[in-house]
Design a binder for these strands. Structure first.
Lengths: 161, 161
DNA sequence: CCATATATGGAAACTGGTTGTCAATCTACG
DNA sequence: CGTAGATTGACAACCAGTTTCCATATATGG
């Protein structure tokens, strides 16, 4: 536990206080998801970050350039590039010539990369099934809706600097 | 947006798929919360991490040692120490002799540290109020409950290595 | 009283991400 | 054409956190 920090949270506005508690809950859950996600795919020589890169290209269904992968992942170009370089060294990606840009290769999954991603998906499926046991579809959907609304609001707020 | 990665998510078990989407939503929301939290307290020369250290000591109400602060924050001893060193250099913490351990000082908020934390709390209050406008108390509570349940499950699962 | 075990701080290396700079490439406009 | 601006990859510096290793302080037990 430990990640308490539970602030007074009850100064005045109870709705704001509830939201503050949700923020803290998101931090806690995020931490554990990353931790267990890493553990889940460690046997495949993957981390959560690299798994996500595989996913971006696998779901696109075609080779992508580094900037395209970065955009799909929601990280910076350089951040994605780091993982791409590592995954290429690990034999999960191969560079293909990019007809549209000489210096910017397209990254394609190798057989190993494709196989690894498929295995990771299977692991994830099992994990989510185990984890969701006994949860109500309705409450899951309600939570997802609220998180999405929150995400949208957080986006708009930050887009006006 | 961009952080799509929306996986097939519909292989078989719809509840597991919904949970998978919640996981992805948690990642997205977490990212934006950190981003905006940093922005929120930047005028106070704080980051989210340092704000959290101030909070740990402020809420304890008494000087704490580095390991105690680390435990309160849910991070490692060395991680907390890094921020403590930085905050001491910034004049927000002062070391006091620890009667119980010569090498392990107690860290106390200076006036500046106390003032800064109070201001950060005020900013956070306003932020949460703005962000929660129009949200229903009931849905916030339902979401908080689900996230807490999820956190608990994630904890138990990982505690058995 | 001493010996071993544990707690602690410090430093370094690592992960994953960011920003910034530079040079090379592309693109678009004049 | 040709040049100005936007993309892009490589590299370096940084933030936040982790693990690991070492040296010292403290605690416990013989």
């Amino acid at each position: 536990m430990a990640t308490d920090s539970s602030p007074p949270a009850g100064s005045a506005d109870p709705v704001a206080s509830a939201l503050t508690e949700i923020m803290l809950a998101v931090f806690r859950v995020n931490g554990r998801l990353l931790e267990q996600g890493d553990r889940l795919v460690a046997p495949l020589a993957l981390t959560s970050a690299r798994w996500q890169v595989l996913g971006a290209v696998a779901l696109a269904g075609e080779p992508l350039s580094a900037p395209q992968i970065a955009e799909a992942m929601g990280v910076t170009r350089q951040g994605a590039q780091k993982q791409l370089n590592a995954l290429e060294a690990a034999g999960m990606f191969a560079r293909h010539p990019n007809p549209r840009h000489r210096r910017s290769p397209l990254y394609a999954l190798t057989d190993l990369g494709q196989r690894t991603f498929t295995e990771a998906m299977a692991l994830q499926q099992g994990w989510a099934t185990r984890l969701s046991d006994g949860l109500q579809m309705q409450e899951l959907q309600a939570t997802l809706r609220l998180l999405d609304r929150l995400y949208e609001r957080l986006g708009r707020q930050g887009d006006t600097p």
